[in-house]
Amino acid sequence: MNVAVSHAALAQSLTPGLSATDVRKTFGERTVLEGVNLSVQRGEIVAIVGESGCGKSTLLRLFAGLDTATSGKVSVDGKVSIAFQDSRLLPWLKVWENVAFGLRLLQAERKKQALAVLEEVGLGKLWDAWPATLSGGEGQRVALARALIHHPAVLLLDEPFGALDALTRIRMHALMLNLWRKHGFTVALVTHDVDEALTLADSVVVLGEGKVLDQFTIEAQRPRNRLDPGFGRLRERVLGLLGVPAL
């Protein structure tokens, strides 16, 4: 009996948080993904890096269930939440109502939970603001809070820091890592920023022309030193694959 249980536990721990098997996606004539294979351990941060148009956002949309693969299999272990590049807040709902949007609970409970996650992302004070009055960084924090309120097992981030200024972006990186440590969800971060990927991720998937060009793990402890020679070598490797000269 005990053995059976531990087998089950072992099997569960081996279930990947996120996986894609021979995934193809075509839009009419255009093939966006051709045979993508990848597997991400539970609780890991994977960064999917590539040029714009390489299919990385399409892959994320498949994981999110917003699109279906033309062939192949996508699997996600548990509940999925997503934060988009545009914070995508409903302009006619207050910040807290945006966060609680879709939460099927009584109004008082919705509000309580929304305030709690807003506090978590450091926006407790702005719960009653209109989205139009928020800065870009604040908007993305609300989007994160809205993703967190559903207690996701997998958090999908579609270039959520892409439109932010450099300083705000660093703050958001720290916030994301803190939330990840606290909640232990699997994170799939789509980005075109190689440094961002190398700073945050446990494993990096380099996507190009619809295929996985490279996949490697990064063992280095966080916070990571960008001046470390190892970091520089990985950076050169990824940029080389993407055909960009490293400076």
Partner: peptide
Amino acid sequence: RRFAELAQMCGASRRELLTRVILPG
């Protein structure tokens, strides 16, 4: 249209889609 996607991801009901997205929009 992206708001419809959002509603899907947040698990909003049809009623919520109507009263919180479509009508106010």
